[in-house]
Design a protein around this nucleic acid. Sequence first.
RNA 1: GGCAGGUUGCCCGAGCGGCCAAUGGGAGCGGACUGUAAAUCCGUCGGAGUAUUCCUUCGCAGGUUCGAAUCCUGCACCUGCCA
Length: 422
Amino acid sequence: MGVPIDPHLLDDLEWRGLIAHSTDLDALREAFSEGSIKFYVGFDPTAPSLHMGHLVQILTARRLQNAGHTPYALVGGATGMIGDPKEAGERTLNTLDTVKDWVERVRGQIEPFLSFEGPNAATMVNNYDWTASLSTIDFLRDIGKHFPVNRMLARDVVKSRLEAGISYTEFSYVLLQSMDFLNLHRDYGVTLQFGGSDQWGNLTAGVELIRRADGGKAHAIATPLMTRADGTKYGKTEGGALWLDPELMSPYAFYQFWLNVEDEKIGELLRVFTFLAREEIEALEAQTAEKPFLRAGQKALAEHVTALVHGAEETERIKAASAALFGGGDLSALSTPTLAAALREAGAITVAPGLGIVDLLVESGLVKSKGDARRTISEGGAYLNNVRVEDPDLVPGEADLIGGSWLVLRRGKKSFTGIEVK
RNA sequence: GGCAGGUUGCCCGAGCGGCCAAUGGGAGCGGACUGUAAAUCCGUCGGAGUAUUCCUUCGCAGGUUCGAAUCCUGCACCUGCCA
């Protein structure tokens, strides 16, 4: 209906490595070519914020919308009450209030990435709306009848849990997600669902339910799980997940994460997490291969992803802060406003004069206890104004204050905290 | 309902009366090497204290003992086998 469709969408997704699994790709290609199709991707509120893994889905949704297709972004007000089974073990159930709160936060994080105007405007849906009032009898008869338990038991996640145990609640999760797809298919004509590759079982179950229940035809694609070069999960390095919420992870730390990505992953991450064109990405990859020490790929990646999530203005401030803090040894060469701005970006606290170095380290949050502070100092990992601290009894004085009031405390190579003394 | 086994630090997993804040691996943290990379090597890894010191910790609550993560009793939860 007048929406220009990008005919190269599927090729682009494949080139970016975004299709880890799929149902019949040729059929999907045909569906894409016939006009704006309606697709959905779901997000369960299992935490107060989405993280890097969800960002893959969000950006993929945007790619599809940019190509002319119509997004339905689903937040799992119902499925979030249940929790999908994961290998690690049974989840702890959250209260309805918690889930409702998280639903709103998650919704707010998704919305900026999609367009809610025009002929292929996005729609937000919440599966709580059609699940909460569903009767058990209807659910068991209309949905449950289509799910052979022998097939459900054969799924990898379930199999891996049979020893340790899995509740009926989590075992049933796949029915709810499949029902979502069925309902969106019926009510809106949604014909494609995508999600992370760990969702593949849930995705295909939905496709199958649509076929069994309605004789309908639907598609599913799964995006790959992002891992580090050694195959381990991301997010362990910075002591937690890579949150999109600036309250949970400062934009500065977010930017630093991308800047520190391994060389081998640059191409992959640029393809998945940026909207840069193929030629630009290939040029950056070549640069990274030839002159890795310039870190051109990392810089571009960090800049683009941070701008997508936290905005261009914030990204500029972060870049300036990073340049100041990592620029060289002599911090006093910077102007005080520049330094202060950089430190506020990286994280800063205010303290009264007279505190010793051990207390300052604890106050700054760089270490978690005084013992940790002493240990760090004895290991040579504590720096005041870029000079290694040797004496744990050191008390910074007037002469140490940069611009009359600032101290720069650093732990290790990368963790800075600004301290304003007044 | 019966029988058997289990519950240890962020995770996995030893310990089975004192030498245990508790072996080992992973993760984390620091150092060296580098490029704010990877790999590697070294160190570190409950809290307070600059000391051979104290406090809290081995599912929960009691008990035995000079002394327990280790033995006993009860409770909770998990797993397996049998009904």
